[in-house]
Design a protein around this nucleic acid. Sequence first.
DNA 1: CGTTCATAGTTAGGTAGCCTAACAGTTAGG
DNA 2: CCTAACTGTTAGGCTACCTAACTATGAACG
Lengths: 160, 160
Amino acid sequence: MNAEPADPGLLALAQDFREALRHSIYLVRRLDADGELSAAQLSTLKMLMDSSPASAGAGASGSGVRVGEIARNLGVKVPSATEQIIKLERAGLARREPDPNDSRAVRVTLTREGRAAVESANERRNTVMAGILLSLSDDDRAALAAALPVIGKINATLQA
Amino acid sequence: MNAEPADPGLLALAQDFREALRHSIYLVRRLDADGELSAAQLSTLKMLMDSSPASAGAGASGSGVRVGEIARNLGVKVPSATEQIIKLERAGLARREPDPNDSRAVRVTLTREGRAAVESANERRNTVMAGILLSLSDDDRAALAAALPVIGKINATLQA
DNA sequence: CGTTCATAGTTAGGTAGCCTAACAGTTAGG
DNA sequence: CCTAACTGTTAGGCTACCTAACTATGAACG
């Protein structure tokens, strides 16, 4: 199993990082507790927003995101994605349309309300987080900023 | 509402940080999927381990952690803590004993198996994480290491 | 063409973890 | 004492996730 004995410094860093993430979950939980949109739903909406830049409502080729793709992007299984989407649809935040090219597939798009909801929810959470960051020193903020791309890389690793 | 217009850089950092954490949840999820102990249970066990350094089995004053304290440390409500503890107890990983000084209270301690379980689970997760970190550059690792205390501060903010 | 295999989503049923509300027992104060 | 405050547990409910089974469409091939 243990092909790598792994150097102790690396393991220590791994441990500390895991610890930090584990605690951060409660931070996220608190941010998400602020109302209306659950964490999962906000994630889903945000993903939809990122995937369909802005533009068109109806027309073109790539309008909407397929359920399977949503699931993959969110790191969940397809039925879980379906479930979320149905809830969003019922809430009037997303729309499901048949794919003209493949009638097995479903294309999911944000409604205007969905777009507004994710924007306002994001804004509110950002404000709260900014308030927390405000209590840090400049150096601390700089250190945090420097690490974010690294964390991004780590997260990207997982997609592979 | 918006007493603070808040400087745009701070908001951007807040947004990026939130984003990083949001994605990291999937990382944590993957790490925790590796078997036996759920995330919540590992958190609980780890907390118990941290709170009762090592030492005695039965004796002294501070042996064990009270349910309310566990809940506070984990950022959950008391009934949720009770639920976790009962599961751990059934699994033979923790023990519940009446507090000799206050019969309302319950003192929770790890069993030998509990201690072993948290150690091995941690070790396995650390190894996986170390493997991921191995793919980073030295600079990246340094940046990450520098940010961890900052994230720790942020998390500590919440306890207050 | 028509069978067969693969792909896309949905439905059904189950689990974990969290919450609030209601309850029981203990301690402490008037 | 008797009441108020505190510590846990129980009961009931919700969200989000999972696997397995099903439906419907598409695609490949003889």
